[in-house]
């Protein structure tokens, strides 16, 4: 139960790209073949370990449908990490990435770690977006990239864990203000006592950074 850190994630991307399936695979190790349209947002959680530390991930899976956009935008700001998902078998979902990214950058805090995910890698025969294209887009926009399959679970763990690693590194570097819960990061009960001084130091570092 006790954790060192708690990270809040959001999962965004067009409808039907497999956001809910990715979450289900990550939390329950199951696959849901039927498209159950997400209404608004759904919550999921899981504990992972990074660097020997327990990290709790709280994940909000958002609805991809346009009509829910105003609701889902409310979640950007409070998240430390975002999985931006497209479907490798549907080019339009790839084409919409720019819009998604703009939206995310506009509403989120600037340090939010974004992981670009090309999902449904199991459907190689129906591929419309090359892996290289995904890599190029990610490079261009400073994102981490991975191709996953929510169906076979390929790279699903990695996608969530690598995002957490990136956030964790940013914390170590003092980029994140971990005392501000609005950033989607919380120090766990396991950590709180010993880390208060460290956190203070990091806060100071950040203030210094702000001055320059």
């Amino acid at each position: 139960m006790a954790y060192a850190y708690l990270f809040k994630y959001i999962i965004i991307g067009d409808t039907g790209v497999g956001k809910s399936c990715l979450l289900l695979q990550f939390t329950d190790k199951r696959f849901q073949p039927v498209h159950d349209l997400t209404i608004g947002v759904e919550f999921g959680a899981r504990m992972i370990t990074i660097d020997g530390k327990q990290i709790k991930l709280q994940i909000w899976d958002t609805a991809g449908q346009e009509s829910f956009r105003s609701i889902t935008r409310s979640y950007y700001r409070g998240a430390a990490g975002a999985l931006l998902v497209y479907d490798i078998t549907r080019r339009d979902t790839f084409n919409h990435l720019t819009t998604w990214l703009e939206d995310a950058r506009q509403h989120s805090n600037s340090n939010m770690v974004i992981m670009l995910i090309g999902n449904k890698s199991d459907l190689e025969s129906r591929r419309e977006v090359k892996k290289e294209e995904g890599e190029a887009f990610a490079r261009e926009h400073g994102l981490i990239f991975m191709e996953t399959s929510a169906k076979t679970a390929s790279n699903v763990e990695e996608a969530f864990i690598n995002t957490a690693k990136e956030i964790y590194e940013k914390i170590q570097e003092g980029v994140f203000d971990i005392n501000n819960e609005a950033n989607g990061i919380k120090i766990g009960p396991q950590h709180a006592a010993t880390n208060s001084t460290l956190a203070g130091g990091q806060g100071g570092q950040q203030a210094g950074g702000g001055c320059c």
């Binding site: 809040k8 209404i39 608004g40 947002v41 919550f43 909000w60 829910f68 609701i71 409310s74 979640y75 409070g78 819960e181």
Partner: peptide, 12 residues
């Protein structure tokens, strides 16, 4: 209103 309930919950 479930959507607002969730947003409010999300905001700690």
């Amino acid at each position: 209103n479930a959507a607002i309930q969730k947003i409010v919950a999300f905001e700690n």
